[in-house]
Design a protein around this nucleic acid. Structure first.
Ligand SMILES: [Zn+2]
Ligand SMILES: [Zn+2]
Length: 375
DNA sequence: CATTGCGGGCTTA
DNA sequence: TAAGCCCGCAATG
């Protein structure tokens, strides 16, 4: 290709920006011809240049749980990876995935988090630290210079991906809604909520590009809801001696994705070469995503979700957990408009999160669908 | 309540 | 000097 000539692939590539710079350079390029779309799951030693008005870049976001670290440089923000929280029992969620919680960013909150037990099997949780950078955690560097935000990562994560921030927020939100997670409250709880089938099951199908509206359907009678039985799913050995939520089944669908196999995948937009993301700018479908919120008898509340974009390397896994979409209405949305409607009040809290997610993605035109949820 | 960024201060190489 | 990390603070949500 001739110099100056820009191919179509340059426009859709997420790797088109120049990389002849270092985050520590006194001067960074200000004549960038091709910006990158926001990369949620950066890995290895990557460099990206974002538009300064990209919300995710502004917030220095990452799918990885990155915490701020003091590098005594007010021009360059440095963050280091906290790893991922797993179940010491290595239990399997009903969706065949494992528990990969997002480590709390705040030190205090993280310590608290580690004292909790697995909500799926009751076993203790364990924080797997990141050693991706010479034995030390992977580090991300952010620097705003003019109209660009420069990103540079050092290291390759040696652990599975944690939940995304959105996922973790939603999980917390749900936990909050049900204060009686202690076993001491369990009995009491059953008394208080004896009405079976108050089942409020709502399924959100988030579609990347089919339409312009968001629909939340209540189908409390749907027999196919995956986790409506709460704790009746697969694990015969219920050691709910301790804590939390034996009556609360929240599942965080995670695929066991290690990055080694597929670098630079799971980007928001990323028409990457090898690992094609879920949402390319094609008319068809990327992957609708669904969010199921439920509440059944005995106060089983659950939510399942996943990131449709999180594992482009394993497309099958993306769909295998989904119910037949035909059983529910679709939520279609557009990058610019989101009509959100829900008829159940208890969806509001989730709606907020979802909406936020949508907002974020629509703000930064770089990726069609930032937050995807499914069960 | 948690996240995010800031910055002092400590330690090691 | 650079890097890693601990800590508390403040703003934000
Ligand atoms: Zn477990
Ligand atoms: Zn890591």
């Amino acid at each position: 290709m001739l110099k100056g000539e820009v191919s179509y692939s340059d426009y859709i590539s997420s790797h088109a920006s120049q990389t002849d710079w270092d985050i520590n350079d006194p001067k960074l390029p200000q004549d960038v011809i091709q910006l990158d779309s926001f990369q949620e799951w950066t890995d290895s030693y990557e460099k990206y240049i974002y538009n300064a008005d990209d919300k995710n870049a502004q917030r220095h976001q990452s799918g990885w749980a990155m915490r701020n670290t003091n590098n005594h440089n007010c021009h360059i923000l440095k963050k280091s990876c906290l790893g991922v929280v797993v179940c010491t029992n290595d239990c399997i969620l009903p969706d065949v995935n494992k528990v990969y919680l997002r480590p709390a960013i705040c030190d205090k909150a993280r310590q608290k988090q580690q004292k909790k037990s697995c909500s799926n099997c009751g076993a203790p949780l364990n924080l797997i630290p990141c050693h991706g950078h010479g034995g030390y955690p992977v580090t991300n560097f952010w620097r705003r210079e003019g109209k660009y935000i420069f990103f540079q990562a050092k290291g390759v994560h040696d652990h599975p991906r944690p939940e995304t921030k959105i996922e973790a927020e939603m999980r917390r939100s749900i936990n909050k809604k049900r204060p009686c997670v202690e076993n001491t409250c369990y009995k009491e709880k059953r008394k208080r909520e004896p009405q079976p089938t108050t089942g409020i099951l709502s399924t959100l199908y988030v579609n990347g590009n089919l339409g312009d509206h968001f629909v939340v359907e209540n189908n409390s009678s749907n027999p196919c809801l995956p986790y409506s039985n709460g704790h009746n799913f697969g694990k015969p050995t219920y050691v709910y001696d301790s804590p939390d939520e034996m009556d609360i089944s929240r599942f965080y669908e995670r695929r066991a994705q290690f990055n080694g196999a597929c670098h630079n995948h799971g980007n928001f937009s990323g028409p990457g070469e090898n690992c094609n993301p879920n949402f390319v700018e094609y008319g068809e479908y990327p992957g609708w995503n669904k969010l199921t919120l439920g509440k059944t008898s005995y106060s089983n509340s659950f939510i399942g979700y996943s990131q449709g974009f999180s594992d482009p390397c394993n497309d099958v896994s993306r769909f295998k957990n989904f119910r037949d979409p035909s059983q529910s209405s679709h939520i279609a949305m557009d990058m610019n408009r989101t009509v959100f409607q829900t008829s159940k009040s208890n969806l509001d809290e989730y709606s907020d999160h979802i909406y936020d997610a949508m907002f974020l993605q629509s703000q930064s035109n770089s990726y069609p669908t930032a937050a995807l949820y499914s069960v």
